[in-house]
């Protein structure tokens, strides 16, 4: 299922003195099965954009096509509900949304809302909790008794159990320690590959965007500046600097070595790949 934006314009508090243009005539597409990164400064319109993808916000002008569902200015709740079924969203600090008396019931909340029966919802909940390495002994515990990291996993399982075609991640690693950060990103990478779903990631961490995504959309002040392959956009130093975004560590190091005369045959995609390319270069230049 693809998501297509057609001249999507989003205006906050229209016709008041506080009117603010958050998105300006954005036309672009998210293709099935790809991993997208949305990047841009705070206030560039990233959050507004993703909230338009599942009907949390409706376009002020223009249209959003979620598969065969069309969302526009006055779309009915019933149709919006269909879009929510297909587009799952993990918010920043998702552990804040837990409320049920047990872990398993909390994960079942979403699936039941979109029409799954008790048994099916339970089955999905158990499956995704296990996938996220949540210990079975915790399933009947109160979610609030868990550690912060476990609570976050439960919240994420609650979205996955709805089995959306598209998964939106809004700063999923905010507030995590570096090791949990890596584990979480690895996990989403694995889920994206194995389930073949579309993932859309919002983050400030350019290293994550570089390492995990296939495509990038760069926003600035409500305008779509660039849309294209991650390898193209995140290796464009001038572009990143212009929009005050950081150059990923590996890219920066590769370019700095290039300026020193150490040239690789291609741009490394991961740290391990860098090590491989560098040792190869070193062996080739060993006197």
């Amino acid at each position: 299922m693809n998501i297509r934006l057609e001249k999507l314009t989003s205006i906050y508090q229209e016709n008041t003195p506080f009117e603010h243009l958050a998105l300006n005539r954005i036309s672009t597409e998210f293709e099935e099965g790809k991993y997208y990164g949305i990047i841009g400064q705070t206030g560039s319109g990233k959050s507004t954009m993703i909230q338009n993808l599942n009907g949390l916000l409706l376009p002020s002008y223009g249209e959003v096509h979620v598969g065969d569902i069309t969302l526009r200015r006055r779309t009915k709740q019933k149709i919006i509900h269909q879009a929510k079924k297909r587009v799952g969203m993990v918010f920043q600090f998702p552990e804040h949304q837990l409320f049920e008396e047990s872990v398993i019931r909390d994960v079942m909340f979403g699936p039941k809302n979109i029409g799954m029966g008790e048994d099916e919802a339970r089955e999905k909940a158990e499956y995704y909790l296990k996938l996220l390495n949540v210990d079975e002994a915790l399933f009947d515990k109160q979610p609030f008794d868990l550690s912060g990291g476990q609570m976050r996993k439960v919240a994420i399982a609650g979205i996955l159990a709805m089995e959306p075609d598209v998964l939106i991640l809004d700063e999923p690693t905010a507030g995590l320690d570096p090791l949990s950060h890596i584990e979480t990103m690895e996990l989403f990478g694995k889920i994206q590959k194995e389930m073949g779903i579309t993932v859309i990631l919002i983050t400030h961490d350019m290293n994550d965007v570089y390492e995990y995504t296939d495509e990038v959309k760069l926003l600035n002040q409500g305008n779509l500046i660039r849309s294209g392959s991650t390898k193209d956009i995140l290796t464009d130093e001038a572009l990143l600097r212009e929009y005050e975004l950081e150059v990923p560590d590996i890219v920066r190091l590769t370019f700095d070595l290039e300026r020193k005369g150490i040239k690789f045959e291609k741009m490394p995609g991961t740290k391990e790949e860098f090590i491989g390319l560098y040792t190869k270069w070193r062996d080739g230049h060993a006197e």
Partner: peptide
């Protein structure tokens, strides 16, 4: 702010308050 965020988060999980 927090109320708005939680309403959105639960609404994204298919919860309906309007119907």
């Amino acid at each position: 702010d927090e109320t708005e965020k939680i309403i959105k988060a639960q609404s994204a999980r298919g919860s309906t308050f309007m119907t």
